[in-house]
Design a protein around this nucleic acid. Structure first.
Length: 472
RNA sequence: GGCGUGGUAGCCAAGUGGUAAGGCAGAGGUCUGCAAAACCUUUAUUCACCGGUUCGAAUCCGGUCCACGCCUCCA
């Protein structure tokens, strides 16, 4: 097997081949930091996290760049509405974004370049495009990319501009263009921009959105790199424009593989504030769900399928994770000596690893990878019930859990298990005493109290186990 | 109007020609003082609908219905 990805450029499943052996350069479109990101946004970042972790699992050193769009219409509009300067305003949401990534256990990219730190690079690229004749200064003093002068335009989105509706959504402030399909590289300053502007050879203004990703990806990853990702809604025009800008400016092929994730729906509808189904990550945390549950739900469907996000789905994720946690706890309790069940464990791990990897390599088929892990747990649980396992087998199995978690990022393997509070332990001790006296009414009543406090009681042959359960 | 995706059990979701993975929820059983966890059994003669191709179709082709996305700055 080999890694395969569905490449939007060819609309085909392709075997992945990196430009440099063992290294993958990855550009992932990041957030516009004008508000808290919503779970639809995080679906994309989760997909990119799984992609990144899968590449690493398959042996690649990943160099990932994620941009932070900290200047655009919305950041300017909202910072002015809040009566704050742009940098102060966007800093709040940049900070929130990184907190949210932590909540979801999303691995950090190598670089998070902010647009406002790279205006000189953007100006340089625009300059090159003007020199080469791909761009022009419009009547409104903005600089535009000319689609007409770049015949390859449309190859990613497979859009034939002559077939498009024209003039439908053209804003009044875009009449400086030669052709409606042309897009802005540099936007000339106007009153709405307030004190947000940079000096350029074309006067005061600010960069267009697309040039930001072009200039920063080329700066950090070079003219030609491996993978570029984003949500399907970025396919056109954003990514199409990035290709046009970069390939026109550098004369080289820009990106080998384009991967796009599908939208997330909430209760089978598009998420919208008016429908009341608009969730930020923080909204869900307030409802009592944790990042791990949200992570599970977001990663459990294939990235190119619509993902239907529901609160019921989150509750199901909670049950799933409980089972995954119980499995690890159970294994750890069995830390006996010896080689009992070692052959069986070796076989189960081998079979499971193959299925797990096969799923991931098949264009990140998480359903298959997850099924492989469930089959693994099932076979191991069965072995524990039937034969018991020695310490060496347990080590082998726990190492496989650790291996799977390099991609999943949800399995509690270390000291993440919360310790039992003294008050809960005292109740449990009291219950145990009552049980010894065969006062089961009292024991059951204490068990109810313990459960109400968020802990579950498991009586095992080895004694009583206390397990933290999420409040629900 | 152009381009594109999808409709699989109560729910979530794999499967793209060989006779429906996995999970959640539910039911019965083993174990248990009772539970919990785990294990065993069970839950779609059927994959939106109608035709066609084929020895064989959820998968390929044609049509219909439904849902959703993009078509200038929304992941």
């Amino acid at each position: 097997m080999a890694l395969k990805f569905y490449n939007t450029l060819s609309r085909k499943l392709e075997t992945y081949q990196s430009i440099r052996p063992g290294v993958t350069d990855l550009y992932t479109c990041g957030p516009t930091v004008y508000n808290y990101a919503h779970i639809g946004n995080f679906r994309a970042y989760m997909f990119e996290d799984i992609l990144r972790r899968t590449l690493a699992y398959c042996g690649y050193t990943v160099r990932q760049v994620m941009n932070l769009t900290d200047v655009d219409d919305k950041t300017i509009r909202d910072s002015r509405a809040a009566d704050m300067d742009l940098a102060t305003y966007t800093r709040t949401f940049t900070k929130a974004f990184f907190e949210d990534l932590d909540t979801l256990n999303i691995e950090k990219a190598e670089h998070y370049p902010a647009a406002t730190d790279h205006v000189p690079e953007m100006i340089a690229m625009i300059d090159t495009l003007l020199d080469k004749g791909y761009a022009y200064v419009g009547d409104d003093k903005s600089v535009y990319f000319s689609i007409e002068r770049y015949p390859d335009y449309g190859k990613l989105a497979r859009i034939d501009l002559s077939q498009q509706r024209s003039g439908v959504r053209i804003k009044a402030d875009e009449y400086g263009k030669e052709s409606v399909a042309d897009f802005a590289l540099w936007k000339h300053w106007d009153d709405d921009d307030g004190d947000v502007y940079w000096d350029s050879p074309w006067g005061r203004g600010r960069p267009g959105w697309h040039i930001e990703c072009s200039a920063m990806s080329v700066k950090y990853l070079g003219n030609h790199f491996d993978i570029h990702t984003g949500g399907v809604d970025n396919l056109f025009p954003h990514h199409e424009d990035e290709i046009a800008q970069c390939e026109a400016a550098t004369g080289e092929k820009f990106v080998n593989y384009w991967l796009h994730c599908a939208h997330l729906l909430v209760n089978n509808e598009k998420m919208s504030k008016s429908a009341g189904n608009f969730y930020t990550l923080r909204d869900l945390i307030k409802k009592g769900f944790d990042g791990r549950e949200i992570r599970w739900l977001l990663m459990s469907a294939h990235y190119r399928q619509h993902l239907n996000f529901t609160l019921e789905g989150l509750s199901a994720a909670r049950s799933v994770l409980r089972r995954i946690d119980d499995f690890v706890v159970r294994l750890k309790e069995l830390s006996a000596e010896g080689d009992a069940g070692l052959d069986l464990a070796t076989d189960v791990v081998e079979v499971s690893r193959l299925a797990f990897r096969k799923g991931l390599e098949d264009d990140l088929n998480m359903s298959a990878a997850i099924a492989a892990y469930f089959d693994f747990m099932h076979r191991v649980n069965k072995a524990v019930d039937e034969a018991g396992l020695g310490g060496n087998a347990i080590d082998l199995l726990l190492n496989f859990c650790r291996e799977v978690d390099r991609v999943f990022g949800v399995i509690h393997l270390g000291s993440a298990e919360p310790s039992v509070p003294a008050a809960i332990q005292a109740l449990a001790d009291e219950r145990l005493a009552a049980r010894r006296l065969r006062d089961f009414d009292r024991a059951d009543s204490l068990r109810d109290d313990i459960h109400a406090a968020g802990w579950r009681i498991d009586d095992t042959p080895k004694g009583t186990r206390l397990v933290r359960v999420s409040r629900s």
